[in-house]
């Protein structure tokens, strides 16, 4: 049993040397790069996650910006449309007013012209009636002289012949 429980000097010396050498080699050539690699990778992953989060926020911001822009554009369009409609109505109503005014003017002018024509026609008619009356009177006078009845007939006939227009 003592071989199991008493450490052998040779084993201890070899174990010390070997362990120190391995510790040194492993520290320098294995654990160093491995632990550094792990750390770097963790850093990279953390950075990537942060960046992804940032990108997500950016996209959200961009989206809301887009939404705002779109809303603005929509508002502007609506404003433009409303303005156009207003303008159209204004133009139409103005045109209507103008046309009406023009028409009124034309009507008034026509009415005046008709009045004038009418007056002229009346004057002409008056003079025509006067001369016609004179003619008739002349003829009546002449016929009257011959026969009463003939005279009556003549007047009637003449009146029928006469177009008062």
């Amino acid at each position: 049993m003592d071989a199991l429980l008493s450490p052998s000097l040779g084993t201890m010396v070899w174990a010390s040397i070997a362990f120190l050498v391995v510790l040194f080699i492993m520290r320098k050539f294995a654990w160093g790069p491995i632990l550094q690699g792990l750390k770097d990778r963790e850093q990279t992953i953390a950075n990537a996650l942060n960046e992804a989060e940032k990108a997500r926020l950016d996209i959200t911001n961009l989206k809301s910006d887009n939404e705002k822009l779109l809303q603005e554009a929509r508002n502007e369009r609506d404003a433009l449309l409303r303005e156009g409609r207003d303008l159209k109505e204004q133009i139409i109503s103005e045109a209507k007013a103008k046309a009406k005014e023009e028409a009124d003017k034309v009507t008034a002018a026509a009415r005046e012209a008709i009045q004038n024509e009418k007056l002229a026609a009346m004057a002409e008619l008056k003079s025509h009636v006067a001369s016609l009356s004179l003619d008739i009177a002349e003829k009546v006078v002449r016929t009257h002289l011959a026969d009463q009845e003939n005279q009556q007939q003549l007047v009637t006939k003449l009146l029928g012949e006469t177009d008062l227009n």
Binding site: I25, F29, A30, P33, D40, R41, T44
Partner: peptide, 17 residues
């Protein structure tokens, strides 16, 4: 150990991140 971990360490430097 040296052989195995050296090779593992190499893959950390070769395939960084």
């Amino acid at each position: 150990m040296i052989l195995v971990f050296r090779s593992v360490a190499k893959s950390y430097t070769r395939r960084e991140g």
